[in-house]
Amino acid sequence: MLPAHLRRFTDARVALGRAGDALPTSALLDLAEAHAAARDAVWSALDPAPFAAPVVHSRAEDRREYLLRPDLGRTPRAEDLAPLPRTGGIVVVVADGLCAAGVQAHAPALLRAFAADWPVVVALQARVAIGDAIGAAMGAEAVVVLIGERPGLSAQDSVGLYLTWAPRLGRTDAERNCISNIRPGGMTASDAAARLHWLLRGARALRATGVALKDDMPTGPLLP
C-alpha cells in the first residue's frame, strides 16, 4: 500500500510526498493558495447596499483596529444607534465579523430561509456582542446576529448565527446559543433556519438563551 491511499480516509493533508525534507512544490503552493484565500477573506469588506437596512459602525475605525481591539468591535457608535427604530420583536444583525465575504454571500439566503419579516440592521467592523446594544436600542425581545466566522484553510465563507434573548449590555457568551459553519457544504441555510426557529420556541418558553437552553433539536423532519 502506498501512502497516497491514506487520502481516502481524511481531509487532512496526508501523503504529500517529499522534496528532500520539505513539501513538494505543488503541496507548498496548495497551502499558499488556501492561506491567501483566508487572508483575503479576513480583510474583505461588507457592502451594506444589498440589505437596504440601517447601518451601524462599531467603534473600531478600520480592520487593523478591529483585529487589535475586540472591545471596540463590540461597541456601536452612539450616533449610529440613535436613529434606529424601536421595533420590538426579533431583530437580525448582519455583521462582517472576521470574514465579510461569507456573510455577503450567504446572509441573503439565510434571511429568506427565516421566512419572517424581522427588521435587519447591518453592523460593520463588528463582533457578536454588538447585537446586544443594537437589540436593546430597538427594544428587541431577542437578537439574531449573523456574523462571518474566522476563515480556515478549507472554508473561507462560514457564517455563525448567535441568538441572544433580551439583549442588553453586559450579556455574556454563556447567555447565547450558536449555530456555526453555515455555508454550502456545511450547514445549509434551510437547516440553520429550522434550527433557529426551534431554538426560538425554547427561548420563548424559558425566557432565556444560553447554557440553560439545550441545543438538542431532534434530527429528521420537523413539525411546523
Partner: peptide
C-alpha cells in the same frame, strides 16, 4: 507535527511533519 501543517479540526496552522524532519537534519 500536523499533516501539511494544516490542522483540519482546530483550523489553525502549525508545523508539519516535514518541518520536523528539516529541523532535525
Amino acid at each position: 507535527g500536523v499533516p501539511g501543517g494544516d490542522d483540519v479540526m482546530l483550523a489553525y496552522q502549525s508545523t508539519s511533519f516535514h518541518d520536523g524532519l528539516a529541523a532535525r537534519r
